[in-house]
C-alpha cells in the first residue's frame, strides 16, 4: 500500500493509452478533432474503469516484455494452425480415432491474468478445452489422451505457452 498513489496514476495512464489506441483503431483517422475527442472520451472511460482494467499499470509495457508478447503471438498462431489441421484430420478419418478424457496439471504461473491467457490459449488450440481452473490446477478436456499422467499432459498441452508467459509475467 506504500506506492498506492503512483500505481493509481500508472493504472490510469495505462488504461487511457489502451482505450485511446482502440479509439484510433476504430476511427482510423488522425484528424485533429477526432484525436481530441478520442483523448477526452477515452480519459473519461478510463476514469471509470482503470480499477478493474489492470493490476500492473505501466509496468507491463517494457520493450523486452513487448518482444515476448510478439513471440507469444507467433508461438500461439503456429500451435493454432497445427492443431487445427490435426483436428481436421481426426474429423475426416472414417474410424474417428479419439480417446477423450479430462486430465489435470499444475501451472507455475501466479498472476490471475496470465492464468486466464493460458487457459484461453489452451481452449483456442483445437483438441484441448479447459474445463476449470482451481488455484494452480488446470482441468483440461483432451480429445486424444496419450497419458493421464499430469507431467505428460503438461508437456504436451501447456509447456510451450507457459515458457513464454513466465517470461512476460515474472
Amino acid at each position: 500500500m506504500m506506492n498506492s498513489k503512483i500505481s493509481v496514476i500508472s493504472k490510469l495512464f495505462f488504461t487511457w493509452l489502451i482505450v485511446f489506441v482502440l479509439w484510433l483503431a476504430f476511427t482510423t483517422s488522425i484528424e485533429i478533432y477526432e484525436v481530441l475527442t478520442g483523448l477526452f472520451i477515452s480519459f473519461i472511460i478510463s476514469l471509470f474503469t482503470f480499477k478493474s482494467f489492470t493490476s500492473r499499470g505501466l509496468k507491463g509495457l517494457s520493450p523486452i516484455k513487448l518482444i515476448y508478447v510478439i513471440k507469444y503471438i507467433f508461438v500461439f498462431l503456429i500451435a493454432l494452425v497445427k492443431a487445427n489441421f490435426h483436428v481436421a484430420k481426426i474429423v475426416l478419418s472414417p474410424s474417428l480415432p479419439i480417446n477423450p478424457g479430462i486430465v489435470e496439471f499444475e501451472s507455475k504461473l501466479d498472476s490471475d491474468f496470465a492464468k486466464m491467457i493460458l487457459a484461453n490459449s489452451i481452449t483456442l488450440t483445437p483438441g484441448t478445452l479447459s474445463v476449470d481452473v482451481i488455484g494452480n490446477r488446470f482441468y483440461i478436456h483432451w480429445l486424444e489422451v496419450k497419458d493421464s499422467d499430469s507431467e505428460v499432459a503438461f508437456n504436451e498441452i501447456a509447456k510451450q505457452f507457459e515458457d513464454v508467459l513466465l517470461k512476460i509475467y515474472s
Binding site: N84, V87, P126, T128, L129
Partner: peptide
C-alpha cells in the same frame, strides 16, 4: 455431426471455427 458427446462436440465445433 460425427463426435459422440457434448465435450467432443464443443471441441470440434468451436475449434475448427476459430481458424
Amino acid at each position: 455431426f460425427r463426435m459422440p458427446d457434448i465435450y467432443t462436440r464443443i471441441q470440434a465445433g468451436t475449434k475448427s471455427s476459430t481458424l
